[in-house]
């Protein structure tokens, strides 16, 4: 039955408001689910970033977990990728500008160490570069295009995944949201 009079509509409004608020309260997200670390590791915002181990260009084995406590920018790239080349200066500036508070990890996918090493030297990359020679970590992180970047909070949670080129302002604003600030005099 469709209400006709104003009082009937107002009564329906009050009922809707009461039922709606009760429903919202009943279906609110529980405290355990709000804690994003309670979720399974996935390369998705709000989930813990999946851990991995890879060999760096220096020959050391590094894991994502060892960077816990610092904001991590996990950047998947390849030497043949144009946009990757364009965004590298912004990543290097961020690595230099935040004095260790922010870690940039470049993960090169499916290329040999010599090729990557020449490229890194040419562009003056000083942040850690890891070699995902068989693409395992790329698959783990659902990398479907280059560059793909994950911003990971100090407690190891994916804040935002990006497919495509990053810009300096985007990096700065996201890092500011995470409480990281550039070291004075370095900018």
């Amino acid at each position: 039955m469709i209400p006709r009079l104003r009082t009937q509509w107002l009564a329906l409004l009050v009922v809707m408001l009461v039922v709606g608020l009760a429903w919202i309260s009943a279906t609110r997200v529980s405290a355990t689910d709000i804690n994003p670390t309670g979720r399974p590791p996935q390369p998705v915002a709000g989930h813990p970033a999946p851990d991995f181990q890879l060999v760096s260009l220096d020959g050391e084995t590094r894991s994502l977990a060892e960077f816990r406590g610092r904001t991590v920018i996990l950047n998947f790239w390849a030497t043949w990728c144009g946009p990757c080349r364009v965004e590298i200066p912004a990543l290097e500036a961020t690595w230099q500008g935040y004095g260790g508070e922010v870690v940039i990890i470049g993960v090169n996918i499916r290329e040999d160490a010599a090729t990557v090493s020449r490229y890194v030297d040419e562009l003056g990359v000083s942040y850690p570069v890891l070699l995902d020679t068989d693409g395992t970590v790329g698959r783990l992180y659902n990398v479907q295009a280059f560059p793909t970047t994950y911003i990971i909070s100090p407690d190891g949670v994916v804040i935002e995944p990006y497919t495509g080129m990053l810009s300096e302002p985007l990096l700065r604003t996201r890092l500011a949201d995470l409480g990281a600030s550039p070291v004075e005099g370095v900018e």
Partner: peptide, 29 residues
């Protein structure tokens, strides 16, 4: 503390539309 934003927006939209109906409706038959 866990309230879902879009549920609040949905309820607000519904209530707004019902208030609009009430405003347009006659006071008496």
């Amino acid at each position: 503390g866990g309230l879902r934003f879009w549920q609040i927006a949905g309820l607000a939209g519904t209530v707004l539309a019902l208030a609009w109906f009430a405003w347009r409706a006659p006071l008496t038959e």
